[in-house]
Design a binder for these strands. Sequence first.
RNA 1: GGUCCCAUCGUCUAGAGGCCUAGGACACAUCCCUUUCACGGAUGCGACAGGGGUUCAAAUCCCCUUGGGACUACCA
Length: 491
Amino acid sequence: MEEIRVRIAPSPSGNLHIGTARTALFNYLFAKKNNGKYVLRIEDTDAERTSQEYIDNIFDSLKALGLNWDEGPDVGGEYGPYTQSERFDIYPKYAQMLLDKGFAYECFCTPEELEAEKEEATKNKKAYVYSKKCQNLTEEEKAKLRAEGRKPAIRFSIEKAQKAFHNNPVIHFDDLVKGDLHQDTSLIGDFVIMKSNGTPTYNFAVVIDDMLMKISHIIRGEDHISNTFKQILIYEALGAEVPKFGHLGMILAPDRSKLSKRHGATAVSEFVEKGYLTEALINFVALLGWSPSDGQEIKSLDEIAQDFRINEVSSSNSIFEYDKLNWMNGQYIKKMDIKELTQLAKPFLNKYDLTELTQAQLEKVIESTREPITVLSDLTNDVAYFFGKDIEFEEGVKEKNIDTEQAQNILKYFDSQLDSYDFNNEEKLHEQLAEFRTYFKENFGIKPKETMWTVRAALTGRTHGADMGVILEVLGKEKVKYRIQKAINCK
RNA sequence: GGUCCCAUCGUCUAGAGGCCUAGGACACAUCCCUUUCACGGAUGCGACAGGGGUUCAAAUCCCCUUGGGACUACCA
């Protein structure tokens, strides 16, 4: 069997979209599962919409997700170059081949003429199909138009190709995920393959590149289904082997429209900036359309690859909801190596003076704060009371947990105990804290919870947060005393 | 408008004619655990879009309707 080769071919007209990331993922998984090669190709034939910034973003995002390619613009490979704009010299040759074989023809129509045809079609409520008026131009007519300064585009003749390779105008192909798909080719207009400026259009460039790069399986979004029929005809006209195609359902926003900016983040890099872990992102996105055979949803890229079968992928669209992503991100945050997590957390701690803490203390802070959070950016607020001298009280906390007589008594007693606490020993601190709350429970019937709320409020300004032992230890005796005294005095 | 694709809990999905009084995960609710918030555990709520067929038997096959999506460029 010939080698399995797949590709991801983003166009750098924006940052790497989460949908493109999923397509890349499924290609990657298919390649890994089948010992194939996964190649990256940049489709930048439209210079107007391309920018280096986007190319960098695509590279960085793909790498961050762990979707490393075997061949691509940066790593090279046997079938390069892997950037379409560097391949401009090869497309005209194949266009010429098609011209010679009679599967293509020059078209001198102006945009105005084409526009008129389209208007006519919509007026008659018919599908727009190019009139083919340039198909049978004589050499003299062409020469005349050229003399007028008109530059021709090259169009592909659908009908000629269909008749040459298919008995029926309705052509079929067996989609890897959707099964039998068909289209009446008489409804497809003779589309442009080479623009009048000499550059190829998408539908032509992909075929040439996929053919030359020996791509065996093309896995992409279902928005490409209609292109597939055009592309199959081109492969055939070129005398090339037609690859297998698989079309994935789309990712939709909760309102069932296309996922766009107004729904929040769309680029992988934006998710990362918000505090999503790339491991969680890729795991989550894999679950959109694919499901693990053992029901275990949290899985690494490698584990998913082992279990992946393209024909088991769902053929319907799926909606991108944050609930499960958030849950999953929280799971990854909870399980991540603490040193690694601390490193990832740093960008979200910009507003604090990190030199106040040692690396070990910072790790301790992150460790004891990571549990309830869902995105890394939650840390910014959750960690606030570990920094600076003073704290800010959350709404209502002071009134409820500091300003009452009971609270004041608790604080005074706590203050009196402080000198006996061992601030360098977290374990000991836990024991002492336990004794402390037992004292109030046994003597005054105050719930341990409430006792701790008061101390916590005085020290952090909130009634929830990290483990109290950790708070005491990291803050240190001096700061603890200061904050407790302040809570007592401000009464 | 035309063409194509899709259709199981709110969401992601399991389900390849009998294993389905439809399973899991997220979310939600209640309870348990607990120094807080969480985590974890338990329980609950909750779906085969509708209608016709085919079959002894249909969530699974076929048709229609409805709904959603995609495409309809000298963009990719």
